[in-house]
Amino acid sequence: MQFIFYLALIIVATKAAGHLSVKLGQPAVLGKLIVGIIIGPAFLGWIQPDDFIDHFAEIGVLLLMFIAGLETDLDQLRQNWKSAFAVAIGGIILPFIGGYAVASGLGLSQSESLFLALLLCATSVSISVQALKELNQLNSKEGSTILGAAVVDDVVVVVLLAVMLSLLGTTESISIPALIGKKALFFVVVIAVSIWIIPLFMKLIAKLKVTEALMSGALVACFSFAYFAEKMGVAGIIGAFAAGIAISQTTFRHEVEKKVEPIAYTLFVPVFFVSIGLSITFDGLGNQLVFIIVLSLVAILSKLFGGGLGARLTGFNNRSSLAIGAGMVSRGEVALIISASGLESGLLPQNYFTAVVMVIMITTLVTPPMLKLIFPAAAEEKALKR
């Protein structure tokens, strides 16, 4: 029954921390992230990472991105595709150059430096999505650009990672054409299913004489898209986001959104926020403090100005460009997955793994307050409800 205690503790801790964070003028998500560190192994040790936490957290981030898809203005997303592409590319080039320079300067080998540079190119907007929702900016031009850029970033970085693992790692050779083909197939299938199958599927399932048939159908779509994305080598959160967009184009959008938010924000999303903090430990980091500080600064500034430059070159003003760059800073769970792949393949030295995790956490923690600082004042009433 220990997992029942974990659930109760997580729900109480995240709601209290989120409320306190809002009272202090910060997005609620910042408090939820920090409380995960406090009640985790780094400080109090009340909750330890386990399979239960991992599974609930995975569902939480999928639902978070599914809701983001439901709330996304598809027309706005289409209009900003050029900006999204420019932001993604700018947010890859600068972090890669900065990461390689830092790693080389600290004496890592060429292959290790290349991997660390690629690691800094990753973007996970799940935390940015929550912060943008609290700031009522998710459906803004800037918010749509951030979401579009995250999709492009995911595809490019995963392809580059596969190339690097194939050429430099200890894993077996990977067919690059097949890899790119799988990603192209993912988008073709998802677009086709979204246009022709999802509307029909939702209409049919809504007619079933069972409890919450429509909501069940929406979750089936969300999890199926996410599973298919993972099988095609695309992040599951991109699949969940695509499922949300697909359902947002049907007449069931508002009903699904109204019912999925209580499920997500009551149980699964709080576990996801806490799970990020559970990966933190401060054991043996004293000797790598300089590495962590330098790499964190490079990770934050390179994404901020790289993504911001892409936005500026495509017509955004200085403030909006900085906001978009800030929304791309968080590396989150995507970078954690990449770092684990690097450790397994031998491209990320074991003695640097914990320090890299710390850098990923720092980029994740600074994103909400950066967005709060740059965007207009948050809608406090909505934030308190989260």
Rank of each mutant, 00 (worst) to 15 (best):
W81M: 07
G244R: 05
A311C: 08
A377L: 12
A246Q: 03
A326L: 00
M202A: 01
A323Q: 04
F3M: 09
Y352V: 00
W81P: 14
M65E: 06
A68E: 02
D154F: 14
L132A: 11
V359Q: 03
L70Q: 05
T123H: 10
L204Q: 14
R78N: 12
V158F: 10
A42Y: 00
M370P: 07
M370S: 14
M65I: 03
R78G: 09
L204P: 09
I338T: 05
V157N: 03
G315K: 13
I47G: 04
G91F: 12
M1I: 05
L295W: 03
F225D: 04
D153F: 13
L384S: 15
A355L: 08
S194C: 07
L119P: 08
W46Q: 03
I247R: 01
L289H: 00
S124Y: 08
A383I: 04
A101L: 13
A17S: 08
A131F: 05
I195W: 12
Q76P: 04
D73Y: 06
K15F: 07
K15L: 11
A226N: 01
I180Q: 02
P199L: 10
G308P: 10
L106A: 15
A86P: 07
I276V: 11
E172Q: 05
V260D: 02
L94G: 14
K183F: 05
P177A: 01
K303Y: 09
T314L: 13
I174S: 00
K183T: 05
E58M: 02
V156P: 02
G308Y: 02
V366D: 04
A117P: 15
F353W: 09
N136L: 11
L135T: 03
E112C: 13
I300E: 00
S109D: 14
L278G: 10
D51G: 14
F115T: 00
R78V: 08
L44R: 10
F85N: 01
D73M: 10
V334N: 06
S111K: 13
K182Q: 03
A42L: 07
G91Q: 08
S124T: 09
P349V: 09
Y352T: 06
L322P: 03
K231D: 01
V12M: 10
A86S: 12
P368F: 08
A16K: 07
F66Q: 01
G277H: 02
F115A: 14
T72A: 14
L168W: 08
L309G: 11
I263V: 12
L147W: 04
A213I: 04
L44E: 06
F52P: 00
S166L: 02
K259Y: 08
E257L: 15
V271R: 01
M232S: 11
S109R: 06
V359T: 04
M164T: 04
Y100A: 14
T364W: 02
F291L: 11
L108F: 15
L214Y: 04
G239H: 07
E112I: 07
S83E: 01
S104C: 15
G286P: 03
I146F: 09
G325V: 05
H19L: 13
F241L: 08
M1H: 15
V334E: 00
A16L: 14
D154L: 12
L64F: 10
P27I: 05
S216G: 15
G217T: 03
E261I: 11
A68D: 05
G40K: 00
I4C: 10
E261M: 14
